[in-house]
Computed example of a mutant assay.
Amino acid sequence: MRVLLTGFEPFAGAATNPSWDVARAVAAAWSRPEEVHAVQLPCVFASAPEALADALATHDPDVVVALGLAPGRVGVTPERVAVNLADARIADNAGAQPRDAEVVPGGPAAYFTTLPVKAAVAAVHEAGLAASVSLTAGSYVCNATFYALQHATAGTGTRSGFVHVPDVGDGPGQMSARDLERAVTAVVRACLDHATDLAVVGGEVS
């Protein structure tokens, strides 16, 4: 089994992006038999899908977990739905700021994730960390990448989806970098161990 784990480069003037930092850390520390490959994506509407397509072609993954930063969220939030909308509050790293545009012209209005999001949340909870299922990935580069990913993998055997991670810190309610690594590792393991959410997790059907 091969896993592709992606994160974004820094954006909006930040020096780092926790989504890339944790993707790289999880891949480097992975100890199970599966292969986990980390790839950094540009925070650019036009080129992120192209970089993602290159990574899919290079690594031919069975599972793809794309990560992005959601400042202000408390825990890890697997996303359920990607929408065919690019509507940017701020410019991307190339200066583009699309408004009311389609990610894929003429594409379906939305795609659902094919990852077991409830099982992933349960696994993070079992690790003692915060997580919840999210119903919106926004309309910035994260959602555009999520949509492009689901469009590219639709009808294939590849299971794929998007997970937002919080900013890291040592303040009340914040995750440390180490805790975020533990949380994302739990997500990836759950995605490998549960093909769908129709599985028993913690004694209950998720």
Rank of each mutant, 00 (worst) to 15 (best):
V3L: 13
L5Y: 09
T6C: 07
G7C: 10
F8S: 00
F11T: 04
A12M: 09
A14D: 11
N17G: 05
P18C: 13
S19C: 05
W20N: 01
V22E: 03
A23Y: 07
W30H: 04
P33G: 15
E35A: 15
V39D: 04
P42L: 15
C43Q: 04
V44K: 05
A46D: 10
A48N: 06
P49S: 12
A51Q: 15
A51S: 15
L52A: 07
A55R: 03
V65Q: 03
L69S: 02
P71S: 13
V81Y: 02
V81T: 13
N84F: 01
A86M: 12
A88Y: 05
P98R: 13
A101N: 04
E102S: 10
T114I: 12
V121I: 06
V121G: 03
V124E: 00
V124L: 07
G128L: 09
L129T: 05
L129M: 10
A130V: 14
A131V: 07
S132W: 10
S134Q: 03
L135E: 13
L135Y: 14
T136I: 07
N143C: 10
A144V: 13
F146K: 08
L149A: 02
H151S: 14
G155W: 13
G155E: 09
T156P: 01
G157H: 07
T158Q: 08
R159W: 01
S160W: 14
G161D: 06
V163K: 05
V165D: 02
V168Y: 02
D170Y: 03
G171Y: 10
P172V: 14
S176N: 01
R178C: 00
L180A: 02
V184M: 05
A186H: 06
A186W: 07
A190I: 05
C191V: 11
C191G: 11
C191Q: 06
D193K: 04
H194A: 08
H194V: 03
A195P: 00
L198G: 04
E204H: 12
E204S: 10
V205N: 00
V205A: 08
